[in-house]
Each structure stands twice: as C-alpha cells, then as structure tokens.
Design a protein around this nucleic acid. Structure first.
Length: 467
RNA sequence: GUCCCCAUCGUCUAGCCUGGUCCAGGACACCGGCCUUUCACGCCGGCGACAGGGGUUCGAAUCCCCUUGGGGACGCCA
C-alpha cells in the first residue's frame, strides 16, 4: 500500500486560527498514525492579502503546537511556471479555453441567471470562440454540461453535484496567475498528496477540482471534509467571539498539549475518552470517528482540559512554558529545583499558566506585596508572640521537612491552644501577602527555610511599626 | 434566489453503518454534599437530550420520506 501523504495549506492572510489549527492537526495526526508524510504549503497566490508576518506567525503557532512537517513549506508564488505549464496543457487538450469577457459582462450574466431563479453563473459565451491568449483574457475550464460528479467523501459519504450547476470557472487570471482551484490540484498532484482533509466549506470546490483531475487524466486523492468550528452563537468563528488565533491562546496560558487535546475532540471521538496525551492521540486517531456536524467552540471545556494537563505534567516539563509567563510578569527565573518546587505547589490550583505565574510571583519577589485587608486582619499585635516563636523555632530547625514543620506548628497549637487556622492564616499572609495560597507546609518547603524565617520576621517588624 | 451539508443534555460527544443489551452513557458548565489551614484539587450525588411529523418493523435514537431549524457555497478570494 502506498504511504499516506497529507498536507496543510494555509493562506497567510492572518494568524493561524482555531479552525485551521484543527485541520492541520487532523492531517498531521493521520500522517503520523499511518507513518506517512505531512506537507506544509503556503497558499499565497492572493498577493494583496498575503503577508510575510502571517507566514511567520503560522509557522510559529504550528511549531508551538508540536505539529511538525516533513516537507515544505512550499510557496505557491514560487510555483507559477508549473501552473502555467499545466494550464497550457489543458488548453491544448481542449479541456480549457481563453475567454475575453469583462468582469462587467460576467456580472450581467450572473444577474440574468439570478433573475431566472438560477444559480449565478458564467454562461460559457467564449467556449466556442477559440480565442488565443491576449490582454484581458482569462482561461476557463470547460466543464461538462450534463451528468453528475460524485464526491466520495470519507466523512460525509457520497455527495452528488449536477455538472450543470457548475459554470466554466476561471483557472488563470488575466494577469497570467493561477486561480486557487487550479493551483491546489496541481500542487496536490505534483506533491503526491493522496489524502485531503479540509473544512467542509471546501466541499463545493471538490467537484471542480475533480474535474481538473479528470481533464488531466490523473488519479484522484481521497477527500474528507470536516465540519466547521462555530462560535458560541453558532455563527462562523470570528474576532467578536474573543480569542481565535493559536498565538493568543499561548499568551493566555494554555498548554499546547491541552490545545490539541481540545481541538481533536471537537469533531472526533474515541468512545468516552476525553483526556489524551500526544502519543495516545497518534496511536488512536482515525478518520472513521470524525463527526459530521459543526461544533461550537467552548472556552470552559478548554480551560478544564488545560487544568488537567497542567496537573498531569511533570514540573520540569511544565517549567519551560511556565517560565515564559513568569517572564511576562517581569520575573526572570531558571528551570531549577526551586522553580520545580514552586510549580508543584501550584499545579492543582491553576487552570492556566498565567494563573500559575501570578500565583507564583510571591515566591520570587524580594519584598512581599501586602494586601491591605489581609494584613490588617491577620497581622496584628495579638499574634506577635506566636509569630516570634514560630520564626525562632523554624530558624532553629536542623532538618527542614514537612514532618519537622508540622511538629513546630503542633507545638505552638499545644502551647497557645489556638486552632490550626489561627496560626496558618497569619503565616500565610506573612509569606505571600495575601490570604490565598498553596497549602501552608508545601509552600514553606518550596520557599525554603531562610526566606521563610526572613519573611516572618519582616511581618513582625511590620506589626511593631504600625502598632 | 439556487446548490450543498448537518440535526442526541446549555456545550463537546458515545450509541446510528451491522434496529432490541438505551425509560440513552461520558465530559464541561451549573446545583447540592463530603474532605479541609485559605484557595483549589479530589470524591459522592443531582439537573439535563434522541427537533417535529409520517412511514417500515413484533420492536427505531438507530432504516426511509416530509417539515422545521442551523450552517456553508455561489468571486479575475483562498
């Protein structure tokens, strides 16, 4: 059996958005699963809207998601001569022809068709004129006027299109450049792509493309059209639905693994399984379980999945992603034992890495930023003695462990008859400046003996100064 | 307007192809409770759907038809 060759062909007119990322993911997953090839191709023939920045952003986002490609990126703008070659071949074989109708004339035809209750189409006026190339002439494909073209779709099943519904569409512009449908077919053909998974907004293009394959006498690839991703109001995902590019999600503190986990489950399933590791996905992904209906993007579910992935990853793996967000807060740190200890205390209470970084800031800051209300409520003269005792006891500890710390707390509780919370809260505020933090022992352990003592002493001075 | 696609809890979905094991399962969200040193995590429980109508059949979420609803496409964009 020939190896599977898939591709992802974004047009660089903006960042990589959610829908595109999912399409890329499906193609990539399938290629990896089948031990085939995944090719990246940039469809930049729309020179007006294509930008270099978009190309950069797309490549960066794919890389961040861990979607790597075996070939490319190819650029359609660099392949113009290949398209011209094929277009000429099509004209010579009588499958295509030159047309000198102006856009205005074609528009009039469309209006006329619409007025008759028909689909707006070009009427084939230049079909038999046998025109040669010239200024302001385009090349159109001579589409069959009768019969049907049946798309055998992997996810939708067979879909029949009446050939009479298709007009002689343009394959070459008057400036000599190739149109989308032609370029795609020639690329897919010459790159050996045999499996095309794309959004179902392309389903309508498929019969047109099949006609080109046929005119060329070429083998047809397999097609699979996946439903689109919709916004929360069921309309096409767009800016007003909030973040929609992969890059934004990176900055919002999402893990690439959570992202691909969420994206793949939007339209694909493996029984009741919700949580997937990357390798798990490669092993289990298939085309049979792709859904047929459109799905809405749900931020809450993404968030929940992100939390699960944060919980399940080892701190040293998480660290690199975490450090990026810490840096955004103006804190430079290393992937060392300290940072990993910090991460461990925050893993089960962070839905995003931004949350984690914010929650971790106090570990790294030299001076504790006291929340006024918290300090007022918990750092008062009443607890001076208690804090002093604890600071002394911790400082005197030879072994700084969970067990010895617990012992220190227990001793104070026995001496003062205070409840655990009455001791823990002031300490928490002294250490973090706020009333919300990781568990008291794990936090003190992660912070280290020296800083712990130092911060408690600072709090004591604060109380004495304000008293 | 014409053509195409789609239709299970609010959302993502399992089940549909190969009718009975489904008074429809899981997850997110939501609501209760437990755990508890804060915040979380975790655990237990609850709420909640086969769009409607016709068939076919002993039996339909599953097969067929119609209606309705949603989405997409109709470019010298991709």
């Amino acid at each position: 059996m020939e190896p599977i060759v898939t591709r992802f062909p974004p047009s660089p007119t903006g960042a990589l958005h959610i829908g595109g990322a999912r399409t890329a993911l499906f193609n990539w997953l399938y290629a990896r699963k089948k031990k085939g090839k995944f090719i990246l191709r940039i469809e930049d023939t729309d020179t007006v809207r294509s930008t270099k920045e978009s190309v950069g952003a797309i490549l960066e986002s794919l890389t961040w998601l861990g979607i790597d490609w075996d070939e490319g990126p190819y650029f359609q703008t660099e392949r113009a001569t290949i398209y011209t070659e094929y277009i000429e071949r099509l004209v010579e074989s009588g499958s295509a022809y030159y047309c000198s109708c102006t856009p205005e004339e074609v528009n009039a035809m469309r209006e006329a068709a619409k007025a008759n209750g028909l689909k707006p189409m070009y009427n084939g006026r230049c079909r038999k004129k046998n025109l040669g190339p010239g200024d302001n002439t385009v090349v159109r494909l001579k589409t069959p006027q009768t019969g049907v073209t049946i798309v055998q779709d992997i996810v939708k099943g067979d879909t029949a299109f009446q050939n009479s519904e298709m007009d002689d569409f343009i394959i070459q512009r008057s400036d000599g450049s190739a149109m989308y449908n032609l370029a795609v077919v020639i690329d897919d053909l010459t790159m050996g792509i045999n499996t095309i998974i794309r959004g179902d907004d392309h389903l309508i293009n498929t019969p047109k493309q099949m006609l080109i394959y046929q005119a060329l006498g070429a083998d047809m690839p397999s097609f699979g059209h996946v439903p689109m991703v919709l916004g929360a109001d069921k309309s096409r995902l767009s800016k007003r639905h909030g973040a929609m590019s992969v890059g934004e999600y990176k900055h919002l503190g999402f893990l690439p693994d959570a992202m691909i986990n969420y994206l793949v489950r939007l339209g694909w399933s493996h029984g009741d399984q919700e949580f997937f590791e990357r390798n798990d996905l490669i092993e289990k992904f298939d085309l049979e379980h792709l859904g047929r209906s459109a799905s809405m993007f749900d931020n809450d579910k993404l968030l929940a999945l992100n939390a699960k992935h944060i919980q399940s990853k080892r701190p040293e793996i998480l660290a690199d992603h975490f450090l990026f967000h810490l840096k955004n807060l103006g804190i430079d740190a290393q992937n060392d034992a300290f940072t990993q200890g910090v991460i461990e205390t925050l893993q089960s209470r962070s839905k995003t890495l931004v949350e984690m970084a914010k929650g971790a800031a106090f570990y790294y800051q030299e001076d504790v930023q006291f929340d006024e209300k918290a300090a007022h409520k918990f750092l008062n003269p009443d607890c001076l003695d208690m804090l002093q005792t604890i600071a002394d006891d911790i400082e005197g500890l030879e072994a700084y462990t969970q067990a010895t710390l617990e012992h220190v707390f227990k001793k104070i509780m026995d001496q003062t008859h205070l409840k655990f919370g009455k001791i823990a809260q002031p300490i928490r505020v002294a250490i973090t400046g706020t009333t919300v933090s990781p568990g008291i022992f794990e936090m003190l352990l992660a912070l280290g003996q020296e800083k712990t003592v130092q911060r408690i002493k600072t709090a004591i001075r604060l109380i004495q100064d304000t008293a």
